[in-house]
Simulated assay, not measured.
Amino acid sequence: MELSNGSALVTGGAGGFGAATVRRLVAAGAKVVIADMSQEKGEALADELGDAVRFVKTDVTNERSVLDALAAAQELGPLRVAVAVHGGPVAGARIVNRSGEAYPVDAFRRTVEVFLTGTFIVLSRAAQAMAGNEPLDSGQRGVVITTASIAGFEGQVGQSDYSAAKGGVIGMNLTAARDLAPLGVRVMCIAPGTFFTPAYGMEEAEAQAKWGPGVPNPKRMGHADEYARLAVHIAENDYLNGEVIRIDGAQRF
C-alpha cells in the first residue's frame, strides 16, 4: 500500500515503539497523528518532525478521545494506517503472593481495559474511518497494526493481567482480519520480545547487560526502530493479513 498522500494514527506515538514508528511513517511519506497521553513528549516529537505530524492528547480507553484523534488524522489525508502501540500499567504480582494476598481485581481489570479494550477501540474505530476511503488500485482501503507481546504466548510470573490482555489481542487478530476483509482493511499484529525502551528506567547499556544475554540471536535486546521497520513493511505489503509476527530474536521463555 502506498503511504504517501495518506495519513496514519499511532497510539502511544510519543513512547519508544511509537515514536520510532512515527518517524518511519513520516519518512515513508505519510502524515501522522501522534496520539498519546504524554503531552510533553508528544509535543516535543511534533516540534521535531514539523508539518508532517500533529499531536493529539488521546486516552485509548475513551471512545470519544480516539474518535477525535482519528478525525485529526483524516484532516491530514485519507486514513491508511493505524498502529496501536500504546503502553499501560506494568504487570504487578502473582495471582496469590507468598503472604496469601490475592492480586487486586481492579488492577487486573485496568490492565485489560488499557491493553485489550483500548486496542479494540482503536482497531474498530480506525477501520470504520478507513471504510469511507476510496480504495486504492490494489483494492485496499487501510491497515490496522496492533501490538501484543511474547507474554501473550508465554507469560511469566506476575504477568497474569498483562498476559491475559496481550493474549486477547493475539486472539482477536484473525477474527478482525476476516471481519474487515470485505472493506479492504487488513489487520496485523506484532508481538515483540525483549526490547529496550525508556520504560526500563535505566541506561541502555545496563539493560542490555541484564537482559540481552537471554536472547538467542542476536544476543541483545531489540531496538524500537526494528519494531518500526516491521510496522512500515506490514503497511506497505498488501499480502500480509491476519497474522501475528513475533519479533524476538528466537526468544522463548
Results as ranks from 00 to 15, higher is better:
189 C>D: 01
219 K>V: 14
161 D>E: 06
151 A>N: 14
209 A>W: 04
86 H>L: 00
51 D>F: 06
16 G>D: 01
162 Y>E: 00
19 A>I: 02
37 M>W: 05
162 Y>N: 00
126 A>F: 07
175 T>I: 14
229 R>Y: 11
168 G>N: 02
179 D>Q: 11
73 A>Q: 01
103 Y>C: 06
33 V>E: 05
239 Y>C: 10
215 V>G: 06
189 C>L: 01
26 V>Q: 00
99 S>V: 11
43 E>S: 12
187 V>H: 02
184 G>M: 06
143 V>L: 09
188 M>I: 10
112 V>H: 05
31 K>T: 02
243 E>W: 14
213 P>K: 08
146 T>Y: 02
78 P>F: 00
238 D>W: 11
80 R>G: 06
94 R>P: 08
161 D>S: 13
86 H>I: 06
244 V>W: 01
228 A>T: 08
51 D>V: 11
250 A>R: 12
251 Q>C: 12
28 A>R: 01
61 T>K: 14
105 V>D: 11
7 S>T: 06
62 N>D: 15
98 R>Q: 14
239 Y>P: 07
183 L>F: 10
224 A>C: 15
77 G>E: 07
26 V>D: 07
130 M>I: 09
96 V>Y: 11
62 N>Y: 10
35 A>C: 10
203 E>D: 15
97 N>D: 15
30 A>L: 01
96 V>R: 11
227 Y>F: 15
99 S>L: 13
189 C>R: 03
200 Y>K: 12
190 I>C: 03
166 K>G: 05
211 W>C: 07
12 G>W: 02
213 P>V: 03
224 A>T: 13
88 G>C: 04
127 A>R: 00
142 G>K: 07
36 D>L: 05
231 A>Y: 03
218 P>T: 04
227 Y>S: 07
93 A>L: 13
61 T>G: 13
197 T>A: 08
174 L>V: 11
204 E>D: 10
20 A>I: 02
45 L>G: 02
141 R>V: 07
205 A>Q: 10
158 G>V: 05
167 G>K: 04
1 M>N: 06
3 L>V: 07
176 A>H: 04
162 Y>Q: 05
153 F>H: 09
97 N>L: 08
184 G>C: 02
191 A>P: 09
64 R>F: 12
36 D>R: 00
39 Q>T: 15
67 L>S: 13
223 H>G: 11
79 L>W: 03
20 A>H: 08
169 V>K: 05
253 F>N: 15
68 D>E: 15
158 G>E: 05
184 G>W: 03
248 D>K: 09
75 E>D: 15
37 M>C: 12
124 S>I: 14
247 I>F: 08
